[in-house]
Write a protein that binds this DNA or RNA. Sequence first.
DNA 1: CGTTGTATTGAATTGTCTCAACGATAGTGG
DNA 2: CCACTATCGTTGAGACAATTCAATACAACG
Lengths: 250, 250
Amino acid sequence: MAQAIRLRQASSPLKASCHTCSLSNLCLPLAVEENDLERLEDIVQQGRIFNRGEHIFDQSTPFRSCFAVRSGSIKTSIITENGEEQVTGFFMPGELVGLDSMSSENYACTAKALERTSVCEFPIEKLEELTGKLPELQHHMYHLMSQEIQNSHQLAMLLSKNTAEERIAALLLSLSSRFQRRRMSGTNFSLPMARNDIANFLGLAVETVSRVFTRFQNQGVIKARGREVELLDVEALQMVSREFSRQGGQ
Amino acid sequence: MAQAIRLRQASSPLKASCHTCSLSNLCLPLAVEENDLERLEDIVQQGRIFNRGEHIFDQSTPFRSCFAVRSGSIKTSIITENGEEQVTGFFMPGELVGLDSMSSENYACTAKALERTSVCEFPIEKLEELTGKLPELQHHMYHLMSQEIQNSHQLAMLLSKNTAEERIAALLLSLSSRFQRRRMSGTNFSLPMARNDIANFLGLAVETVSRVFTRFQNQGVIKARGREVELLDVEALQMVSREFSRQGGQ
DNA sequence: CGTTGTATTGAATTGTCTCAACGATAGTGG
DNA sequence: CCACTATCGTTGAGACAATTCAATACAACG
């Protein structure tokens, strides 16, 4: 008892304030009734900070928690038997990382901070227990996981049918809309990831990514300097990204 | 009351017998305690049969149910804005279709029977309700969805980094192991899908698929006649499928 | 001011696609 | 049972997008 009180007090300063979190409309709290929010907050460990390059978790280590990005950004990747890396996703604030590991004892991928990043941790047993009690939350979990499947299908589609230009246009637009969701500029942002990661993620050579960037720039569609990107002609990008199958019919 | 009894009686002959189903070790019953199995059986609609080419459900129609394949096989695909088709998966007996639609009002893809196919239907509201009551079942749902995410990542990887030969070898091995799971021959089976579907799924041209098949055949790795396939040298296929990155190192 | 990692640019190579023709197979109706 | 037709699968030759290899430019950092 006394211990319970002590714990509660001790964790109080660290305890999540989903109530006040600006991302609550994107993250798990979205699904939770105001009066149940405390129960979610009770299981969250909040405020862990990772520096650029640090691992949030590692492939093949015991799967314990899912993580919500609070600020910064994360890349997930799989290391194959050959030692090759495959980037499987980029995660921005409000997005949940680790859903692909819920089928195994160990993490299915490695999550790495692309910049100084703060996360909220949801221990999986507690989360599962809670979703069993809160149907809305369970529904939301299904929703998120399903979304992840769809995203991955979209990616597979992009990789199997689209040209380098189309893939990069699609990525830029995806990032753009994700920035916008957070009420940041959708046309003027800085890429959290290196060219290398983009290339890997999109199944291209780094050189190709570079070439496409400059090609877009020459066409006046974007302005790029290193990681700093400005989308000058969003419509053109949209054209490009869905303009496969039709030949040249701009 | 009387109605309840009537319903129970009426549905009795159609009611699922997960108890006796040979696929219960792959499907949802896997996660359910013996004494809870009835509750799962209560929500299942079993025994719907579809002929080759018939749609189990259609993209953009209201999402109502997930389906477990009982016999036969299913392909799922997305139709893009351009009218292009993208095959997103093949489903064999014991596997669950529709998980990618749980984030939306409507089905995210179309499911089509590749041959005469029998399915069990799980209405989604009832399923969600039940998973809220049976933690093991909830866990299993998370497991399946997570698996689906991983599969899709694997596919993305295959599409982005591997050659035509590697992709096809991987597909053949995947099918092989899925046949084996059902205690069927893993080296001698007939492909449920057309070359066209294989090509679409793997992001290749039909011609390329054809060429690789004959190449494998000339190398004595497989024997193929139409959809009938025999894997003559499984190890060679395994070599091929994971032998990217290393150059020429047979 | 080198050093290291990251990004860009160029030239040559190649795997896969496209286009096109042909063969095989299955289903249909006379 | 045999054409007839449609669909599916195979094979060949040329084109092209992206890769690979190689060199250079740029930025951050101790």
